[in-house]
Design a protein around this nucleic acid. Sequence first.
RNA 1: GGCGACGUGGCCAAGUGGUAAGGCAAGGGUCUGCAAAACCCUGAUCACGGGUUCAAAUCCCGUCGUCGCCUCCA
Length: 460
Amino acid sequence: MSLRLYDTYTRSLREFQPLREDYVGLYTCGPTVYNYAHIGNLRTYIFEDILRRTLEFNGYSVKHVMNITDVGHLVSDADTGEDKMEKGSRRTGKSAWEIAEFYSQAFREDLKRLNILEPHIWCRATDHIAEQIALIQCIEAKGYTYRLSDGIYFDTSKLPDYGYLARLDVEGLQAGARIDIGEKRHPTDFALWKFSPSGQKRQMEWDSPWGVGFPGWHIECSAMSAKYLGVFFDIHCGGEDHIPVHHTNEIAQTEACHGTRLANFWMHGYFLQVDEEKMSKSSGEFLRLQTLIDKGYDPLSYRLFCLSAHYRAKLNFTWESLDGAAISLDRLRNQVYEWGEPGDVDANYAHQFTEQVNDDLNMPRALAVTWEVARSDLPAPIRKATILYFDRVLGLGLGDWQPPKAEIPESILALVQQRQQARSEKRWAEADALRQQIAAAGYEVEDTPQGPRVKSKKSE
RNA sequence: GGCGACGUGGCCAAGUGGUAAGGCAAGGGUCUGCAAAACCCUGAUCACGGGUUCAAAUCCCGUCGUCGCCUCCA
């Protein structure tokens, strides 16, 4: 069954064909580690995880690379303003290096909690300064750069196709520019190498053929993707906001130096909105995964919530909808657990599921198939095996889950015992009173054919 | 100001020409001494107004509304 993916570059669904025999190269733009990731950022990484799992589900061996931007990402993409890392350093009093390390760890922890598979290669911008300088030299040698007082810039007017990915109206941008372009020759020109401000020592700076400074934000992705995946690889991903500037400039750099395309497919995850508005790091307050955990949600509830919408559509976050996902997840987990040992995968449903997943990662549809299986008449072992098979893509960890083993105090167990006694003697009023008493202590009794089951209300 | 997207039942959200997937919530029911769990049943004509078509949520035009990008952003 063919896998069809939406390619932003051609604005169309294309059948996926790997470029190489041995692996599918997947490069996903990682975080700028100057702050925590918020759940909107995380939505994109969940999408990319689904993509990777889908590729593997289809039998491909994936080589997944993710960068960590720890230098050069300025507060403004107009190539003015402070470096985010240096700004974060001033804010917290820690060194830029410490900040990078701290938030990198926090980010990896978030991915882990969302059951997102780790990239095979993590690469930090600061570990690849030499590669970036070499790439800039290449671009310079081909005549695409010019020097200004504050750095080396890319002359976008020299590339006829500049901005094709975003379908940029370059002339319209010139005319309607709302920002001061400074000394730059064209609004779309961007920095490849920035000089350290004179008389000022930056925490992160390096020697280069052009002077002491640091690399521009876009060059790291072109340099590192080429190093680990080759100059022309299979799929490059990121958030939709990367289409007009970041990815557009990566393409320009690679085409200028190598004269070849950067990636075969360009895929972008769309934004999460909160109460119909975008969540922004710079607006101050934002929801972290930890915020959700603190409120008692399982991180995988958020993952399931994200799967309920297509990655190429905005998703509106509300607490009510997250509650819905949490309950759904709980039901799926409990059912899968209670079905016992898995049997064989149902071929018919497997086919339906694959069809949806391979249709540009239609997870809402794939989930609908999942529910159909869960509520079908198939024998429990078949249902279990089939849903665990689906979970290779869904990544909800359904096979690993076990009911929480609540620590039930002796006193409560005694009450439960007493109630059982009362019930067996049909003293219903007394039994009900005991139920009330147990409930008041924060526990719940469920009578099952196997006897009473006690649960802590909090661990639910 | 320029560009773009979207508007589907209480909430989240599929579907982009043939008469509305799924999840959650709600109501009803089965089961249960009670309760829970589980299961079953019930609800939308798709922002509004025109148009094209045998046929439109799905195409075109207009109106209203919301959101995004052009400023950092996944």
